[in-house]
Amino acid sequence: MGISGENVLMVGVGGQGIILAGRIIGNAALKMGLEVKVSEIHGMAQRGGSVVTHVRFGRKVYSPTIEVGKADVILAFEKLEALRWLHYLRPGGTMIINDQEIYPLPVLIGKGEYPSDILENIQSKVSDTLALDALKIAVEAGNPKAANMVLLGALAAKLGFEQELWHEVIEQTVPPKTVETNIRAFDMGFERIKSPGACI
């Protein structure tokens, strides 16, 4: 893990603030003088569907999307989505998982089953798996909607850019009124990963 170049795949459920988080990572990498590409999905898929944002940065980046098996990090905003996109992770890659379950409609109406052992399943395959309850931490930070910032903080701790730089980018990206809460949530996610025994 370093700042030379990374493929970060962000996965989750439409409405979780993934597009904003992707923009912040992209801008942070840009500030580091790196080339950046971010690829988002808008429209119908956003209506509670499975969504994915690709973030790639490095000295030279061509494709806007990450190949299967080439993601250095998967930042999963939801557990089932972590499992759905797992095959995008490279061997030895890092999985950061928000320990939150959002049941998809087939499960809600009894037409499908939400797997009960997702964390164990992924941990058995990916040794560098970090899980945190971003929603709980965001509530502590002052707003459940800042869960995306908690996860961003967790990712930032792994990426190795200066914390200051992230603060600057967050300040420039989120609405002025929400800067304080968002930075607090970001820092709590950051500390969570930095502290020993980070996995819940």
């Binding site: 494709s63 098996g69 759905r84 095959h87 998809p104 395959k125």
Partner: peptide, 29 residues
């Protein structure tokens, strides 16, 4: 995608994780 181009040119490479089966779909709602 890059992998489709790679495969088309016969440059197939191994990936480490197989896609999981039987994951409930998450259609937009």
């Amino acid at each position: 995608s890059t992998e489709i181009v790679r495969k088309g040119l016969g440059m197939e490479d191994e990936t480490s994780f197989k896609p999981e089966d039987n994951i409930p779909l998450r259609p937009p709602v």
